[in-house]
């Protein structure tokens, strides 16, 4: 068995995916601490209408529809819009945050499905490429796309490191953060932006349907093992990078395995492996 793409390309793809996995794990730690796990689900699914719109706009302008930055911007725009709509929807009578999450998820993904059917009817041959965005396909990724992915992931990691202390305080104790004079609303927006950047960066490799797993599962696995939030975040980044890399290798070896599904399963196995070492399990054994 050999990897279909060997040499420099494979190494670049692996490095890009590992970077994305690390970002997802670290952002996921904060998202879980802030109890926003399901917002990650919404953000992932809600990139679909934006991506399809960006494709249609690009084609109308005579640009290649799969230009990565176009897709990133389109996906990020609708993902942000969906995340921003959850709180006002939740304030409607008898809706609540559970109902608002379901509405945002179904509404935006439904719109994405409609727009995707428009893309499919498009004469351009590039439409086949958009389908791979659903479950991810590392084998089909171009060097350009890896570069864009890596740039977004690196910039987000830097932003995360800079903001980590403030974000951690808000996640740990919102009331305290307010009295300490931290701009809680701005920091919440920053976390959503980081989440959207993560989802967009992972779109091509992890896919928009399962990218949420790379945000939640490595962070949950790392949480099992305990420690301060910074320790948990660093460990989650490692687990995320490992899960993403394993997923890429598995999907490159097994030709028909979608990369996103492979990454998700790798992360789930790492999570299961962490359970015996969890603090709660150890406390019981003691």
């Amino acid at each position: 068995m050999t990897l279909p793409t060997t040499g420099i390309n494979t190494i670049a793809v692996l490095a890009g995916c590992a970077l994305f996995g690390a970002l997802a794990g670290a952002v996921g730690t904060l998202v879980l601490a802030r109890r926003r796990a399901l917002v990650a689900d919404v953000a992932g699914h809600a990139t679909l209408p934006g991506v399809a719109l960006a494709f249609l706009v690009a084609e109308a302008l005579g640009v290649d529809g799969r230009t990565p930055w176009m897709l990133f911007l389109g996906g990020a725009a609708t993902a942000l819009l969906a995340a921003a709509l959850v709180p006002p929807l939740a304030r409607l009578r008898r809706v609540g945050s559970d109902g608002a999450t379901a509405l945002a998820l179904a509404g935006f993904f439904g719109l994405g499905a409609v727009l995707l059917s428009v893309v499919q009817s498009h004469p351009s041959g590039a439409q086949g490429g958009l389908r791979t965005l659903l479950f991810g396909n590392a084998a089909a990724i171009t060097l350009d796309e890896v570069g864009a992915l890596a740039a977004v992931a690196l910039a987000s990691i830097v932003a995360l490191v800079v903001l980590f202390r403030a974000l951690a305080i808000v996640a740990f104790d919102e009331a305290f953060a307010r009295t300490a004079g931290l701009p809680v609303r701005a920091l919440d927006l920053a976390l959503i932006l980081l989440l959207v950047a993560t989802v967009v960066a992972g779109m091509q490799v992890a896919g928009i349907v399962l990218v949420v797993a790379l945000v939640i599962t490595p962070a949950a696995a790392s949480r099992l093992l305990g420690g301060t939030l910074a320790t948990v975040a660093r460990r989650a980044a490692l687990i995320g990078a490992l899960a993403a890399s394993l997923g890429v290798v598995a999907s490159l070896l097994g030709e028909r395995i979608p990369t996103g599904a492979a990454m998700t399963l790798a992360a789930a196995l790492l999570f299961l492996g962490a359970i015996p070492f969890s603090r709660a399990a150890r406390a019981e054994a003691a």
Partner: peptide, 21 residues
């Protein structure tokens, strides 16, 4: 574990779905 319900749900349903895919 002492994970919150939403996180556990997220881990489990994505893993099952991925297996199905």
């Amino acid at each position: 574990t002492r994970l919150e319900a939403g996180a556990v749900l997220g881990v489990v349903f994505t893993a099952f779905f991925a297996l199905g895919v």
